[in-house]
Amino acid sequence: MSTPLEANQVEAIQGYDAEKRYKYLVKEVVANREIWILTDEHGCVMLNTDYEDCVPVWPNKEFAESWATGEWEDCKAESISLNKWHSRWTHGLEDDELAVVIFPNQDEDGLVVYPDELDFELKQQARKQNQR
Rank of each mutant, 00 (worst) to 15 (best):
A12H: 14
I13R: 00
Q14W: 06
Q14A: 12
Y16T: 00
E19N: 01
E19W: 00
E19S: 02
K20Q: 14
K20M: 08
R21C: 02
Y22L: 15
Y24F: 15
Y24I: 07
V26K: 02
K27W: 07
V30L: 10
V30E: 05
A31F: 05
A31T: 14
R33T: 07
R33A: 10
E34G: 05
I37N: 00
L38R: 03
D40R: 13
D40A: 13
E41T: 11
C44A: 15
M46H: 10
M46F: 11
L47F: 04
L47D: 04
N48C: 08
N48D: 14
Y51D: 13
E52I: 05
E52D: 14
D53L: 09
D53M: 10
W58E: 01
P59W: 01
P59T: 06
P59C: 09
P59M: 07
P59N: 06
N60I: 02
K61S: 05
F63Q: 08
F63C: 07
F63E: 08
A64D: 01
A64I: 01
E65P: 03
E65T: 05
W67C: 01
T69R: 13
G70C: 12
G70F: 13
W72G: 12
W72C: 10
E73F: 09
C75L: 08
E78D: 12
S79N: 13
I80N: 03
S81Y: 06
L82P: 01
N83V: 15
W85M: 11
H86Y: 13
T90G: 07
H91P: 03
G92N: 13
L93D: 06
L93P: 04
E94L: 06
D95F: 11
D95E: 15
D95W: 08
E97D: 15
A99D: 02
I102R: 02
I102K: 02
I102E: 01
N105S: 07
Q106D: 12
E108R: 10
L111I: 14
L111N: 08
V113R: 12
V113F: 09
V113Q: 12
Y114I: 06
P115L: 06
L118S: 03
E121R: 11
E121G: 07
E121M: 14
L122E: 03
